[in-house]
Design a protein around this nucleic acid. Structure first.
Length: 253
DNA sequence: ATGGCCTGCAACGCAGGA
């Protein structure tokens, strides 16, 4: 079974890339973040024509998440139940017996900002909720844009990134708390090339110079991690014309 | 050199991303 995640930075603009991704990788579940459109505008006909179904929680202009799958996604849950948050950042569903949790963790803007506090509070609520979910679902995958680079090797210049948002100690601690729930970072279960990243700034030729960070992750419950065969970032989609600034991540379980 | 680029909304500039 193939699980994938991709922050598409507007599904309207990136629909051709998403359809190409479905054709290339044929994922059993593809989690999308930042679809940036309201539910009535979701391109369901094009997705269906590609042989996929979708569940989604859209929002105008900002955020918005979806799960695409060739088989039905059932027991859909939108948002973190305990968190009163109008921002559409979470959708969870069961696909082929796997609990797929798609998250768009807040960016945090800057460590001094209110948005950073919102991010930390949001992460605490996520951790409490997932602890309960893991008790119910042995096969659980947490996929998405975490907006956290967990280790030095996940940023192009750890000294420059030290203390900055995406790489601050409280954010890295929250990532470790997620792992401590019994979730494995599937990407690090395998040998990977040095300087492997999932996001590059549009500015300054960030991608061509490989000035990136690894902030998109697929975490797997112990039961799923045991049978995980691979995890990779497909940088081809970041190299295309008019790309998302994120590359998709794919895990085979 | 504290910007650069991209998206959506709406209106010709802004917020937000990371």
């Amino acid at each position: 079974m193939k699980l994938a995640t991709w922050n598409v930075n507007s599904l309207k603009v990136r629909l051709p890339h998403v359809l190409e991704f479905l054709d290339k990788h044929k994922p059993d579940a593809l989690c999308l973040q930042e679809i940036k459109l309201e539910d009535p505008n979701f391109p369901i006909k094009d997705i269906n024509a590609a042989g996929y179904q979708a569940v989604f929680a859209g929002q105008k202009t900002y955020n918005g998440v979806a799960i695409l799958s060739p088989t039905p996604a059932v027991d859909v849950c939108i948002g973190i139940p305990s968190l009163d948050d109008p921002q559409k950042r979470v959708i969870a569903a069961t696909v082929n017996g796997v609990r797929v949790v798609c998250v768009y963790i807040p960016n945090g803007e800057a460590v001094e900002s209110d948005k950073y506090q919102y991010k930390l509070n949001w992460l605490m609520a996520l951790i409490v909720w997932l602890k309960q979910e893991l008790a119910v679902h042995g096969k659980l995958a947490l996929l998405g844009d975490y907006n956290i680079a967990p280790e030095d090797r996940d940023v192009f210049d750890p000294k420059q990134w030290a203390g900055k948002v995406l790489f601050s100690d409280p954010e890295k601690a929250a990532f470790k708390d997620l792992v401590a729930l019994g979730l494995a970072d599937s990407f690090r279960m395998f040998d990977q090339a040095d300087k492997s990243y999932s996001w590059w700034d549009y500015r300054m030729n960030g991608f061509k110079r490989n000035l990136g960070v690894r902030i998109d992750h697929i975490l797997l419950s112990t039961e799923l991690a045991k049978s995980c065969k691979s995890c990779a970032i497909d940088t081809d989609f970041r190299a295309k014309e008019r790309p998302s600034d994120h590359a998709p991540v794919i895990a085979e379980i």
